[in-house]
Simulated assay, not measured.
Amino acid sequence: MITLYPFRMRPIFRNYPWGGRRLGSVLGKPIGEGPHFAESWEIVDHGDAQSVVANGALAGKTLSQVVAEHGEQLLGIRYAQAEFPLLYKFLDAQRTLSVQVHPHDDMAAQLTPPDMGKTEAWYVLAAEPDSLVYAGLKPGTDRDTLARAIAQGVCEDYLHAIPVTAGDCVFLPAGTVHAIGGGLLVAEIQQASDTTFRLYDWNFIGADGQPRELHVEQGLAATDFTTGPVALQTPVPTDRSHVVRLVECDKFVWDRWTFDKPVELQTGGGCHIISVLAGELSVEGDPAAQSAGLGQTWLIPASVEAVTLTPRGPVVMLDAYLPD
Score class of each variant (00 low, 15 high):
Leu199Gly: 06
Glu39Pro: 07
Glu42Ile: 03
Gln94Leu: 08
Arg21Leu: 07
Thr227Leu: 12
Ile180Lys: 07
Gly24Phe: 03
Leu111His: 08
Ala149Tyr: 11
Val244Asn: 10
Ala231Asp: 11
Ile273Asn: 02
Gly71Arg: 11
Ile189Glu: 02
Val304Ala: 07
Val133Met: 13
Tyr158Met: 03
Gln73Cys: 05
Ser291Met: 13
Arg21Ala: 08
Asp92Ala: 10
Leu246Phe: 13
Ala278Phe: 11
Thr112Glu: 13
Ala54Asp: 14
Ser303Cys: 13
Pro85Trp: 00
Glu188Leu: 10
Gln81Trp: 09
Gly295Pro: 13
Ile162Trp: 01
Val177Phe: 12
Ala207Thr: 11
Phe90Val: 09
Glu42Tyr: 03
Thr223Cys: 06
Ala121Thr: 09
Ile12Gly: 00
Ser64Phe: 12
Gln94Phe: 04
Gly117Ser: 09
Phe13Asp: 00
Asp115Ala: 14
Lys29Ser: 04
Thr145Gln: 13
Gln81Asp: 15
Val263Phe: 01
Arg245Lys: 14
Ser291Asn: 14
Gly19His: 11
Ser193Ala: 06
Phe37Asp: 03
Gly167His: 09
Leu299Arg: 12
Thr227Trp: 06
Val66Ser: 09
Asp92Pro: 10
Ser64Trp: 10
Gly20Ser: 08
Tyr158Ile: 03
His242Phe: 15
Asp115Trp: 12
Gly183Phe: 02
Leu318Trp: 07
Gly47Thr: 04
Ile300Met: 11
Glu72Tyr: 06
Val276Leu: 10
Val236Phe: 09
